[in-house]
């Protein structure tokens, strides 16, 4: 198991008048190589959960196991955690700070104990993996890159340590359609190569394309957990949680209401097109 979360609870601003429960008794586990989406209305506790899972907040109640180890156990080596778990926060381009892209991407490898040559190879691999031209950007200042390129450089910095698991918070916000498409392709490829991916997002279309399983958080509770098609199928429940579904799922719902036999566990366009074709042909035109 990559992640095992057991009865995790968290209270925000404990002991002040602003005290609010952020998470209440949340449990789930994520296997190696899964691609899991997390959705929830703003303020549902997603961000807190993400910080707890990444060991960036101590867990006051409940346990977080990563690869079978309690990350809040006394004496647990956090630097090991940092190398096997990559975290990409919202607007990651804001964390770029070095004078060149190469140095910035190498930042996470500083304490890795790798040789200079190995580090260089890793950096080149990471920069090329995110689709940037290594020889062009390596000596460039990250500030000189375009918006989309900056995001890629920041992702390269997280990938350079070659983490086994990757947590992403709203990675598609602010990207234009092509940037979004390229990012999703990259994530699907990394996942195919064995990386466990956990993506927190409001972007139902992206999750519908890339994720296979979906968790829904609602007011600090785990409200749903299952194959994404199944969770999206219940559009009323999604609406109750203040969430939308992907456009393809929505279209499938409208078509079904008009009497077209389209399955209701569709999440992406890839599934919608053949389903509509089958429905039109099988539905028996006169």
């Amino acid at each position: 198991m990559s992640f095992e979360i057991k009865s995790l609870s968290y209270v925000y601003q404990r002991g002040t008048p602003l005290e609010t429960p952020a998470l209440e008794n949340v449990s789930f586990s994520i296997g190696d190589g899964e691609f899991v989406g997390i959705m929830g209305h703003t303020g549902c506790g997603k961000s807190t959960l993400l910080h707890l899972m990444a060991g960036l907040l101590p867990a006051p109640a409940g346990t977080v196991l990563i690869d079978g180890e309690d990350i809040n156990r006394k004496g647990y080596d956090r630097s090991v955690l940092r190398r096997k778990l990559g975290v990409l926060f919202q607007f990651p381009e804001s964390q770029l700070f070095e004078s060149t892209v190469e140095k910035d991407v190498a930042f996470g490898l500083k304490h890795s104990g790798l040789s200079t040559k190995d580090i260089e190879q890793r950096v080149q691999w990471a920069i090329e993996t995110v689709g940037l031209d290594y020889s062009r950007v390596k000596g460039q200042s990250p500030l000189g890159l375009s918006g989309g390129e900056k995001r890629r450089a920041a992702i390269a910095g997280v990938l350079a340590v070659q983490p086994r698991h990757l947590i992403l918070d709203e990675p598609t916000v602010g990207l234009d359609p092509m940037g979004r498409e390229a990012l999703l392709e990259l994530l699907v490829k990394l996942n195919r190569d064995g990386m466990t991916i956990l993506m927190v997002s409001h972007d139902a279309d992206s999750l519908g394309e890339a994720a296979r399983r979906l968790l829904v958080l609602h007011q600090g509770h785990l409200a749903a957990d299952g194959p994404i098609g199944q969770v999206f199928a219940d559009m009323d429940a999604m609406a109750d949680w203040g969430l939308g579904v992907s456009q393809s799922r929505e279209a499938a719902g409208l078509l079904a209401r008009k009497g077209l036999e389209v399955p209701q566990d569709i999440t992406s366009y890839r599934q919608l097109l053949p389903a509509v074709l089958t429905a039109l042909k099988g539905g028996g035109s006169p």
């Binding site: 910080h51 990444a54 960036l56 630097s79 940092r82 190398r83 778990l85 990559g86 975290v87 926060f89 990651p92 804001s94 964390q95 700070f97 930042f107 996470g108 500083k110 304490h111 910095g157 997280v158 340590v161």
Partner: peptide
């Protein structure tokens, strides 16, 4: 946010020595 993001990338802001702490500031 930035402190958290850099911590996740392996920066160490809490390590004891003064020199280490100074080095951790640019990120």
């Amino acid at each position: 946010d930035i402190r958290t993001a850099q911590t996740a990338r392996g920066a160490q802001f809490e390590s004891g020595k003064l020199l280490d702490r100074a080095k951790a500031l640019p990120p």
